[in-house]
Computed example of a mutant assay.
Amino acid sequence: MKKISIVLLTSIVFVFASCCNNQKNNDGMETANNKETILIFPKGEVINNDYFSGKAWLKMLVTDKDNFDATVGNVIFEPGVRNNWHSHPGGQILLCTRGTGYYQEKGKPIQLLEKGDVIEILPDIVHWHGATPDSEFEHIAIGTQSSKGSVVWLEPVTDEEYNSYKK
């Protein structure tokens, strides 16, 4: 038992050290030894609907939403891509894992998102999220209380709204 714990602890430390030993290349993308972008989860499939302003990918990570009453997916946005205004009847949590992005609730200023940020979105709050103009953005999207209903899609975010971020 002690031997297994030591092996497990060593593995966790190795994975953590590998993740934290990233560098930035000239494009600001995280790389391992400046060779490639590090993805924790597979990129998934291109999202083919009218609710995104450009190319984004989705990889569902939890597929049994009935037993867990949640959806969990990894989303990657190309630079400048955002989703439409929308809300979630059961709420949503965003775990930001790579790049820089934006998040905005209706009537409030845009928030800059970076790796490590957590956004807690209460049920029925109208909002949008996506990448900044010059960076890919990746987050894990957790749809909570999914039995209350799926996402309610609204109108696209205008360029004027998207470009209103103030530092």
Rank of each mutant, 00 (worst) to 15 (best):
K3T: 15
I4Q: 14
S5F: 12
S5C: 08
I6C: 08
V7P: 00
L8W: 05
L8Q: 11
L8I: 12
L9F: 12
T10M: 09
T10P: 00
I12N: 00
I12K: 05
I12C: 09
A17H: 04
S18L: 13
N21H: 14
Q23Y: 04
Q23I: 04
Q23V: 02
N26G: 06
M29I: 14
M29A: 13
E30M: 12
E30Y: 10
A32H: 10
N33M: 06
N34F: 06
T37K: 11
L39T: 14
L39G: 12
I40M: 09
I40V: 12
I40T: 10
P42H: 12
K43M: 15
G44I: 13
E45G: 13
I47E: 07
Y51W: 10
F52N: 02
M60Y: 12
V62G: 13
K65F: 13
D66Y: 11
D66K: 15
D69T: 11
A70H: 09
A70Q: 11
T71V: 11
G80D: 09
N84A: 09
H86Y: 06
S87Q: 04
S87D: 01
L94H: 05
R98I: 00
R98G: 12
Q104W: 00
Q111C: 08
L112K: 15
E114L: 00
K115L: 04
I125K: 12
I125E: 06
V126C: 05
V126L: 07
V126D: 07
H127L: 02
W128Q: 03
W128I: 01
G130Y: 01
G130C: 07
T132F: 11
E138P: 01
E138C: 07
I142M: 06
Q145P: 00
S146N: 10
K148Q: 15
G149N: 03
L154N: 09
P156H: 02
T158F: 02
N163H: 09
Y165I: 03
K166D: 02
